[in-house]
Design a protein around this nucleic acid. Structure first.
Lengths: 343, 343
DNA sequence: GCCGCCTCCGTTATCGCTAACATAACGATT
DNA sequence: AATCGTTATGTTAGCGATAACGGAGGCGGC
């Protein structure tokens, strides 16, 4: 089995394998895809030849010929947000033995970037697209609608989707947290969040939160927004700033757990009585933080579950008729942790 | 511009655009790729037709015909490790305007999974592969060698690579940390790390660390390994366990910053004098932790820089001759933070 | 007026594989 | 022995784009 010198070797094709094993290209193709009837004898022969040559099939040609691509596009705003890798992990797990493979694109929360990423992905004709959020440019939305493949918009259900939707209502999540806070007796409430106007889910939580307070005649007493930098430190800094500016606050609601944890650390170090004098809550339920001495109140965003369900829709679509348009709303559960006083 | 009903519409091709705009397919192709001479008039005409139809090029066909694929495979062990998203971000940034696009594959630290992921990726004939680590199965290594595309192995330079290599010496990183610790006067040293036998880089750091201690006649006094779970909490738990078992330790070296942070929190809460009575150090320099009240001693693993350089090699290869085989060793800098006493 | 040289655009032949159909070989069935 | 069904393999015709080359038309120089 002597291979030609590495330098001037042209790429291997099915033909090489077929010649090496004395059968037709079609038979080799069948063996390598485990499709159609092939006798055990030739199967062995072919596999051996393929291995000896080090042949790797060319999926580009295969996909073109079969009009089938085993890729699923996953478009998310960021990889550093912690939340998205978890969603991804749910997707991967569900796709594990379906033969489908996720391909990730990152948008940095920029609509135009999202549009570009979607264009690029669609040009590979994937079996489906999973995209975070319901807000897209008009062009992007049109592309998705015309693509002819299953689309699943994830994370958020407050709005209308292109096709299927899997997520939670961030508006109601904010609202429920407001209710829980009020129920615990807190009244002077501050909000700390990200400045990003393009994080629609954080915005919706904020709006729902305000709405929940308003229903009880309570208004947010102070707000503070940040952008960029280490979330933990920002949480610490913002907390300090807010407490100095508005010392009579009795609750701080953070738009994510990371800045909430920063705030918690600040309070602990400065001997502030949590949750007695000051209550705290975040959002997401990241288990990265499980190691803190006090468990921050939070709300699980069902991240893995969202990933799973979305992948399930894409993977299942070919089988169970191509109806599409499902909307799956998950219910985030509130976890009072140790930073909201029990009533 | 009336489109047929969405239901029974077959996928658009170049031909549709060419008919709609009254030129040949080739001309449309040229316009959409900005290649070759096309008059401004026809260019406009074609773009307008493409847009009106909502045409998205089929890169599968394009790639097959041109034998060029604008994808770069990136194979990493995990996305939850924090380190890898950062490497990825470096890669993305560098690839930004080269027309190349990263495609991520995750191996969960399993060699067989890595092999499978590489096989899958190579079957798409990417322009290059960036893969974490120097340790691969024989088959995987053979595939990479035979692929005929640029390969960059990243993170680690302690070993021999298939083609190019960009990383740091984890062995020397461990060794230097040992020296710094000894120099500060600590002698009773414990090591806390991950149990994963497949995290070769952690292992190499550990070995280098032991070597560094041994050079001064010091041996590790105690070790503790974990697997799975919240790193922060594990760090806390392991620290407690170790200090109870071996109370006379004066230094704890953690194999990553996250468990180190857990240990630091434990010490702070339990009134242990850091760095006076007990010194601490981690590894990686994750800025997620910047918000802690005390800065953990650590060593920057040059993650973004590694990503950048690797991407640079892949992107640059076509231009500057196809020599290949570069080895770029970056120098991690030690950051004593606040948890090693200054001499 | 002929030639050459642009500029712009079309024609033809792949790229490597697979769907769909065709065929061969062989035993079982009647 | 003719017929049929099965199983195992081969043949043909694309899939939708691009590379490479070719040709038409316009313009200037001699």
């Amino acid at each position: 089995m002597s291979l030609p010198p590495k330098e001037n070797r042209r790429p291997l094709t099915l033909r090489d394998v077929s010649e090496a094993s004395g059968v037709s290209e079609m038979t080799v193709s069948r063996v390598l895809r485990n499709r159609g009837d092939v006798s055990e004898a030739t199967r062995e022969k072919v596999l051996q030849a393929a291995k000896a040559l080090g042949y790797v099939p060319n999926k580009i040609a295969g996909a073109l010929a079969s009009q089938r691509v085993n890729l699923v596009g996953v478009v998310i705003p960021s990889l550093s947000n912690l939340v998205f890798p978890e969603v991804l992990s749910g997707i991967s797990a569900e796709l594990e033995d379906t033969g489908l493979q996720p391909v990730v694109g990152v948008t940095n929360y920029l609509p135009e970037k999202e549009e570009a990423v979607l264009y690029e992905m669609l040009s590979w004709r994937p079996s489906g697209i999973i995209v975070a959020g319901l807000e897209h440019t008009d062009t992007a939305r049109a592309m998705l609608e015309n693509s002819g493949i299953p689309i699943v918009e994830i994370m958020d259900v407050d709005g209308t989707g292109v096709d299927s939707v899997v997520g939670i209502s961030h508006r109601r999540a904010g609202l429920h947290m407001a209710e829980a806070i009020l129920k615990a007796g807190y009244r002077r409430i501050g909000f700390l969040g990200t400045k990003m106007p393009l994080d629609h889910r954080a915005r919706k939580r904020f709006e729902g939160f305000q709405e929940g307070l308003a229903a009880a005649g309570v208004q947010i007493a102070d707000t503070e927004f940040y952008s960029g930098g280490s979330a933990l430190r920002k949480g610490r800094e913002m907390t300090q700033a807010m407490l100095e500016r508005t010392p009579d606050l009795d609750f701080l609601y953070y738009s994510n757990d990371m800045i909430g944890a920063g705030g918690l650390l600040y309070c602990q170090e400065n001997g502030i009585d949590v949750p007695g004098k000051l209550g705290l809550a975040g959002f997401n339920g990241v288990d990265l933080l499980e190691g803190l001495s006090m468990r921050l109140a939070t709300m699980d965003a069902c991240r893995r579950e969202i990933g799973r369900k979305a992948a399930e829709i894409i993977a299942g679509r070919p089988h169970q008729g191509l109806i599409g348009g499902e909307v799956i709303e998950l219910e985030p559960v509130i976890d009072l942790g140790d930073t909201i006083r029990k009533t």
